[in-house]
Structure formats: C-alpha cells, structure tokens
Design a protein around this nucleic acid. Sequence first.
DNA 1: CGAAAGCGTAGGATCGATCTAAATACCAAG
DNA 2: CTTGGTATTTAGATCGATCCTACGCTTTCG
Lengths: 339, 339
Amino acid sequence: MDEAPKRRVTLVDIAADAGVSRATASLVIRNVSSVAEGTRKRVLKSIKRLGYVYHSGAANLRTQRSNAVGLIVSDITNPFFAEASVAIEERLAASNYVTLLGNTSEDRAKEDRVLKTMREFPAQGILICPALERDTSGGASALAGQLPMVAFARRARGLDYAGVDDAQGAQLAVEHLYKLGYRRIAFIGGSSNSSVSQERVDGYRKALTRSGLKFDPLLVIPSTPTRRGGYDSVRKLLQIENRPTAALCFNDVVALGVIEALQLSGIRVGSGFGVIGFNNIPDAAYSLPGLTTVDTSPRQLGEAAAELLLKRIEQPDSPTRTVILQPRLIVRESCGAST
Amino acid sequence: MDEAPKRRVTLVDIAADAGVSRATASLVIRNVSSVAEGTRKRVLKSIKRLGYVYHSGAANLRTQRSNAVGLIVSDITNPFFAEASVAIEERLAASNYVTLLGNTSEDRAKEDRVLKTMREFPAQGILICPALERDTSGGASALAGQLPMVAFARRARGLDYAGVDDAQGAQLAVEHLYKLGYRRIAFIGGSSNSSVSQERVDGYRKALTRSGLKFDPLLVIPSTPTRRGGYDSVRKLLQIENRPTAALCFNDVVALGVIEALQLSGIRVGSGFGVIGFNNIPDAAYSLPGLTTVDTSPRQLGEAAAELLLKRIEQPDSPTRTVILQPRLIVRESCGAST
DNA sequence: CGAAAGCGTAGGATCGATCTAAATACCAAG
DNA sequence: CTTGGTATTTAGATCGATCCTACGCTTTCG
C-alpha cells in the first residue's frame, strides 16, 4: 500500500476529469452563462465526484480582491461593541466579505500589531474602534490614505467616522430630568481621555446652562465605565453637600451599578432620585426600576460603519465622510416618569 | 500629467531597486540568516524607500498555510462567549494566526454558510460553538475528518471538544444549598435542546438523589437563557405548591432576572431564599445580593479550545480529544452564606 | 460558395510570494 | 595557480485560481 499524499483537488483535476480546460471549469464554477449546458453538467458532476473545494485564496490573488475586511474592536466584551460587531459582521457577510477579528483590549501596542497583520493580509479595508489614548493621531490615522478605513464609536483623525451624537443624547437626558423637576443633576462615570465621554459631558453642561441651571464641576464624578465604577461612585455622590437628586450616567452598565448602590443606601430610585443611562443595552429593560436611557442603537451604528467602509472601498479617493446617528430617549421608570 | 495607476510594490520592485534577485529579497524579508549583512541592509533600505507592504496572501498560496482560523460563535453578544472569543483570538494571534469571525445568531443556515466560506477561504482550522438544535450531527460534524475543527462550550459529534463539567458544577451548587439547609430546590432556565442544559439538569438531579432528596420534574422550569427568561420564570415558581426555597439557575443572566423578580415579590434573596447562577460573569459580583455562582471561566475555556485546535492542525489524524474544565463554586451572599 | 458573425472552448500569461537545486563568489590550503 | 569547501545568490518552477486573446466550428447571408 503506498499511502496517498492526499493532494488537494484543483481545477486542473476537474478539467482533466471532465475533459475540458481549466478555463472552462473556472467558468462553470463562477456560474458564467456562456458555457454550454452539457459541458456545465459534466463539469459539475466531476466537481461532486472528486469532492472539489473552491480555493478563494488563489482566486483572490489573481483578482486582487481579498474579500476580507478587518474589524478591530477595543473591547468586544462590552455589550455595546458586541452588538455593533455582530451588525458589522452581518452586513459585510451580505456583501460577501469575510471579517477578520482583532480585539485590542484597549492596548495601543496590540492595536498596532493587529493593524499590521490585517494590512499585510491584505484586508481590503478596516473598521476600527480605536483604543483609548490621548492623541488621536496614532497608528490607525497613519494609514489614512493607504487603505480604506472607517472609525466607529470613537473618532480617529483623517478617517471616515460613524458615531452617535453623544452631546445631543446627553441634552435629551438632562432636559427630561429638568422637565420632571430635578434641579441638581450629577454626571457619573466619565473619563477625560475618551472623546465619547467628553462629548457627553459637553452636552450635559450645555443642557444645564440652557435650562438656566449652573454647571458644577463637583457634580461630574469620573469612574471606570463598568458596573463596579458606577457602584463605587455612589459613595462620592452621597458625600457631596447639597446632595444631587438625579444622575446622568456615562452608560447603562454604570447606571445599573449606581442604582444598586443607591438602593442599598436606602435611596429609592424612580421616586426621589432619578437615574438615566446611555446605550439602552438589553439589561436596561429588566432592571428594577426599568432604566430610562439614551438609546444609541449599536446595530444601526454597526450597519452605518460597514456601509461607510463598503462605499470607501468602492471609491478610495472620495472625501472623508461622517455619519452621526441621532439618539433617542427611552423612558422607563428610573426617573419616576412611567409612560 | 499622466496619472500613475498606483501599482502595488512587490518583491520584484524591491529586488530591482536593491540590485538583487527576488529570491534574495524574499530571504531578507523572512529574516533568513544566510544573507550577507551588506545585502540585507541594501534590501531593507529599498523596502523602506519604496514603501513595500508584505503580501501574506501570496505567500500563503505558495506555502499552503493560510494562517487563518475560523471562529464561529452562536452568539457573541452573550458575555460568556464574548470572553471566550477574546481568549481564543489572543491565543491564536500569539501563534500568528488571524481569526475569521462568524456569528450565527443560533441560526443553522447561517452556520452552514459561514462554515462554507471559511472552508473555501481556506481557513486552516475552525473553532465552533454550534448553534442549538436537536441532532448534533449537523453541518459542523459533517466536515469532521476534512478540516481541523474543535467544538467548544457545546458538543458536536466527531469533533474535538473543550467544555466545562456542567454536571459537576450543578452538583457543587446543589450540595452547597443542601449544606445550608435548603431542601426544596428548583432548577430554572434550562432548555431541552441544549446539551449544556441537559448536563446541568443531570448534575442537579444526581446531586439531589445523592443527598437523599427526591427529584421533582415540576421543579425544573424551562426558559430562554436570558434575563427576561429568569424574570418571567419566577411567576411560575411562585405558583408551585409547597413553594421551593432555593433555585439553581441555568446561568448568571437568568439568575439575575430571578433575583430581581423575587425581590419585586417581596421575597428576600439570601435570607429565606437561595439563588445560585452559572458562569460567574462580571456582573455577578455586583448584584445585590452578590450572586453565588458556579465559575466556568470563559477565558480558560477559550484558551483550552484554541490549544486543542493548534494541536490538531499539527496532527490532523490524531484521535479525537476532549478537554473538560472543572468548575468551582464562588460563594457570595445570594444563598445566605457570606464567607 | 466564401466571408462575416457568433458561440463555446482552449492555451498561456498572470497575481506575489516561496521552494528547489544549482550556480557563483570568496577564501584558505596545497 | 589550482582545488576544495563554505558562504551567498539566483533562475525557474510552483501554489490555484482568473484574465485575455485566439481559434475552431456552426450558422447566416450577400
């Protein structure tokens, strides 16, 4: 028994088996209509008989389209990004692209590594939610002209951008609280090195001023954007003299932490104290009380981002584009206004 | 001005520029030591000068290693899978593999599509958490011998498997409850078409029997594995005559929903009613009361799965392997036993 | 009846790298 | 000034598909 080295079945084999040329076999595979019905049948039969598996890698080399797009996320563990990623993957798959995943865990160095790998792959384009850092001119921006790229959720200089109007969202929230009679409103959970956070705080401040309230820097309590962060912030919140009666939180996860801590302190959320979150994650609907929140629809964001990238791949030299989605307020019970 | 078609810079260009052959240029790129120092320097300079970008796709065609691995997840929105995916991606990246992502949303058809795309890519191996369904002989199993594949978190016939000892975890939980004096223990949130759920129910039943308690099918309350599912199950739970005094939940998300609903009904969790979850997701630590849960470490699971796949890629014909991680109980306050 | 037109198919070049085997360069010893 | 051996370098084939051009055959028509 000589053991067969198990060579790959290629178009050549198919062609030989069906008694046609590679070119013809290729035409059949690609479903080009110019092939005679009889020939097509014969080739298809050979394909099935020999168990041929298409090799897109080879095809891509020739056609110069890798059919792959890179998706670089700062933290796919965050439900918001997870949702957005799913939407992106779906949209790309619909256009026959494969998604290359890279999770950076907010690590700049890892981001650069992933970027390099994907570029060399070569991916035809890249979607990136840049890792947090001071300057926005980092690795991603450096590739700006070289490769179709789109930033989402967080901006990167020189890149197309799909994001949410965070300032507007914060304003909606503050106005809602104001209408319900709350006057001393805190902002919990921002962090100064995130553009998203800055924009939300800006909107918060603007809305306060517009409502005739004074912006008090003491009421802005920074924290990590996690449940724990929100939970811990409440201690500081309660120590503020002339204690706030409502809080706008950086995101839902923080808000849920805040609610828990407040209730543990005997403060009733929804009557007496108002809490609003950001993002409208699934859990927000099932908390007690239901969390009023600013819906930033990760799915739509993902779709918009993917759309931008596909467009840019088609027209690499078009001017930079930006899509800003408008958030809307989802009113539940955490501010006392049950609709 | 004639506009340059902006041809790609290839090894040929580098070779010409540096006055060497393609082969030599290739040696330099791959860091092969047989190249003379002077030559290497010259080539590197040309690479920088012309802005050469490596094209692994082309290399892969020749070397027959695509350097890509497929990761197919049933729902990356689930925190447990998200964590596992991150761990997988990291492990693969460490071994120089790119991760192709596919999210199936528990959809069999999508799973088949993704599987096909990845196989044709061609990925060198696939990690899959199969979508829920009756028979485990579906699309993934069909490719068993053809392509290195590993199933994780959920079994698939004929594939390597990395998972958690769910039965054992359930037993730990039940024993814990028993020791604390709970005698009427429900199981909330299973679904009969998930092998994971079956194993957990099995462990639950076995532990009951072992403790001298009787297994009562009425106490097994199925639901979707979501917060809402847990929340809604409580209504049924409270209607059972001779009401249970404790509940083991299918996972933490369900458990959190259960806790909320219980508290809303005025039942105090942690004193009077015990609740245990599964998975130890980050939120479990921050709930009120802290959720006692069975830790199934998604990170470890992901690493184990990736490891299995790498091994199988090396030795495609080795016998099927299985890794079962042992869970441990994380005791918090939801059963009244504060450590 | 021969040229033009149309359809289906085939052959060879090509994408951008790597591999193989062999050629060339370099250097010290005989 | 060979010879032998080591150190570098190279031409050409190759991976598996697609593109381009041309060619054979049949059909159409002046």
